[in-house]
């Protein structure tokens, strides 16, 4: 996604200045990251969702550029520390941007990515849950954690179509979990979310390949 084309001239210049500052002195990101929305841009991104559940918002995309700038100048370990710091000190908007930017991390930093996704998936904030479940870093979750992530999305209303790994990663255990959930809803006389069929309609191989 090209962030530049989504921004007007003034915002592009402001972003370029911030990126330059981060390249010169990556510690500055701690201050620039929270200021990104009010200084550059905020609001719905290409998904049209101003809440950032269905896809990154403008401020997410701006913050992703700052993460990329960090990745360009920091060692993989320092980058992982900075990313974890930005998440743990972030407000919900900053955290969502970090979750959408986990792909900047080195493969060796996978434990950090897992820790941050696990933290987000424990919350009840749909914006954080969606961001944690929709990026390529989701591939790092083991089968159990990933199934729980999918079920959580179903439970809180994050559309399953946006969840990374649906349907290719669906296995028999996830089908069972979602079928049980649908059954529980039906018995309670409550509607079953339509998108459960993205899992239930997918027939996985007989033997689950992941334990």
């Amino acid at each position: 996604m090209n962030t530049e084309t989504l921004l007007d001239g003034q915002a592009r210049r402001e972003l370029a200045t911030m990126v330059e500052r981060v390249r010169e002195s990556p510690d500055r990101v701690a201050v620039l990251f929270p200021a990104a929305a009010r200084r550059v841009a905020r609001g719905a991104g290409p998904s049209g969702d101003p809440d950032g559940v269905l896809g990154p918002t403008l401020e997410d995309l701006v913050r992703l550029e700052l993460l990329r700038a960090c990745a360009g100048v920091l060692t993989p370990d320092a980058l992982a520390r900075e990313v974890a710091d930005l998440y743990h000190h972030g407000d919900s908007g900053e955290r969502r941007a970090v979750l959408r930017g986990l792909a900047v991390l080195d493969p060796a930093s996978a434990p950090v990515a897992r820790e941050l996704m696990a933290d987000a998936l424990r919350t009840n904030d749909t914006r954080l849950i969606a961001a944690a479940a929709s990026g390529p870093a989701t591939d790092l979750l083991d089968a159990h954690a990933w199934r729980q992530a999918v079920l959580k999305c179903l439970f809180v209303g994050v559309p399953l179509a946006d969840v990374r790994g649906v349907p290719e990663r669906v296995d028999a255990e996830l089908v069972r979990m979602c079928a049980d959930y649908a059954d529980e809803r039906e018995r309670a006389g409550r509607p079953v979310p339509d998108d459960v069929h993205l899992v239930l309609g997918h027939s996985p191989p007989d033997e689950p390949t992941e334990a």
Binding site: V156, G157, P193, D194
Partner: peptide, 9 residues
């Protein structure tokens, strides 16, 4: 939204 964590579901 098809049910979120507070208002629905």
């Amino acid at each position: 939204f098809s049910g979120n964590s507070i208002l629905r579901g």
